[in-house]
Design a protein around this nucleic acid. Structure first.
Lengths: 199, 199
DNA sequence: ATAATTTAATAGGGATCGCTATTTTAATGG
DNA sequence: CCATTAAAATAGCGATCCCTATTAAATTAT
C-alpha cells in the first residue's frame, strides 16, 4: 500500500481538477494505484477521502497564507500579499487551475448536499479570517472606525472566488494581479471621494 | 408532449440548481413528465438540452441586462444598475441561488470538457459586453484615457462570479448589494489617491 | 515449518448512468 | 371503419456509479 500522504496528494489533485462529482472512485483508485477495498479501508468513503484531501491540500497549499494575515504587516500590505499569494496558487504551472475550495461544489446533486456544506463552511471560515484581520485593522487605526469589516471581507472573498473561476477558464497570473490591483483601490481610506463624472 | 418552452424552463431550473454533472437524464425526464425517448427526440442529447436550456434561461433571466448597458445612462450609473440587477437575479425567492452561468462547470470530468467550454465562452462573452461599455465610457470621457478596460471588465466579472458563489452558499440580497457598493468604489476617477496609511 | 494475522486482489452487488430499439397507444386521413 | 402516420410508453442496452463480501497472497509469530 502506498504512503498515506502520497495517496492524499494524488486524490487531492484529481478532486481539484475534476471536482467532487466529476471524480469517480475508479478514477481515484486507478490514479492511486490501489484497489477499491484499500481505498475504503484507508479512507472510509469517497466523501471522507474528499474531506481528508481538502485538509491535506489546504495545509500544504495555503498554510503560509494565514501567517501573512497574522503577521505584523500593515493590513493593506498584508491583504495585498495575501491576494497575490492566492493568485499564484490559482495559476501554478503543474497544478490544476483555480482554487480547490473557492469555487468547489456550488451546484450539486441533492445527494451531495453534505459535501457542499463542507466546502461552504471552509469558504466561510476563510472569510472570517479576513474579517478578523480587518477588525484588527480598525482597532489599530488602519481602517476607519465603523468600517463594515464583514462586507469588506466578503468583497475580497468575492474577488478570490472570481479569480478562481477565471483561472479555471484559463486566466493567467498577470491578469489576476492586475485585477487584484483594482480590487485594492477599494480599500477604505486608501482613496477619498471626489466629485464623480458619472451623473 | 409538453410545450417546448415549458420543458426548457423545467430543465433549466434543474441544471441551475444541480449543475450539469449533478443533473441526470432521469431527473430531467421525471421533472418534465416525459419519457427518455421524448427527451432525445426533442432535444437531441443531455448536452444539447443543456445548451438550449442555457439559451432559454439567459434570454429570460438576463435579457434586460444588455439593455441597461446599451442605454444612454452614464457608464457608472449603468454599471451600478447592471450589478444590482444581477444581485437580484442571484437571490430570487423561488429560483435556485446564484447565477446559472457565472459559476457553472468550473471543475468537471474530462468527458464534459465541451460543456465546460460552452459555459466559459458565455462568461467570456459577457465580460466582452462589459469591456465594450467601458471602452465607450473612455470615448465619452467618462473614464480616463488609457484605462485598462479589459482588466476592469474582468474585475467586475470577478465580482459577479463571487456574488454567484456566495449566493449558492446562502448570501442574501442586501449583503450582495453592500458588496457591490464597495466594488463600485474601485471605479476609476470616482475617487482619487491620497496618502495611504498602510506603510 | 506451521499457524495466526495482516494486507491486497478479485469479483461482483445493487443501483444508476446516458441513450435507444421496440412496442404500444393515440391521432389523422381516406 | 379501417389504414396510415405520428406520438408516447415500455423495456432494456452496455457502461459506470459507490461500495463490499470473499478469496488469495504476503507477512509475522510461534
Amino acid at each position: 500500500m502506498l504512503d498515506r500522504d502520497t495517496g492524499l496528494d494524488i486524490a487531492a489533485r484529481l478532486f481539484w481538477e475534476r471536482g467532487y462529482e466529476g471524480t469517480s472512485t475508479a478514477d481515484l483508485t486507478k490514479a492511486m494505484g490501489i484497489n477499491p477495498p484499500t481505498l475504503y479501508s484507508n479512507f472510509g468513503s469517497k466523501e471522507e477521502l474528499y474531506r481528508q484531501a481538502l485538509d491535506f491540500s489546504i495545509a500544504r497549499e495555503s498554510g503560509c497564507r494565514a501567517e501573512i494575515l497574522a503577521s505584523a504587516l500593515p493590513a493593506y500590505e498584508a491583504l495585498s500579499r495575501y491576494l497575490y499569494n492566492i493568485a499564484d496558487g490559482d495559476t501554478q504551472p503543474d497544478k490544476p487551475a483555480g482554487c480547490m475550495v473557492s469555487t468547489a461544489v456550488l451546484q450539486h446533486a441533492e445527494e451531495n448536499a453534505s459535501v457542499a456544506r463542507l466546502t461552504a463552511e471552509l469558504r466561510e471560515a476563510s472569510m472570517q479570517v479576513l474579517k478578523a484581520r480587518f477588525d484588527r485593522a480598525v482597532s489599530e487605526d488602519e481602517l476607519p472606525a465603523g468600517t463594515d469589516t464583514d462586507t469588506l471581507a466578503r468583497f475580497y472573498g468575492a474577488i478570490i472566488q472570481g479569480m478562481s473561476a477565471q483561472s479555471c477558464d484559463g486566466a493567467c497570473n498577470a491578469l489576476l494581479k492586475r485585477l487584484i490591483d483594482i480590487a485594492l483601490t477599494a480599500w477604505p481610506g486608501k482613496r477619498t471621494t471626489v466629485a464623480g463624472n458619472s451623473d
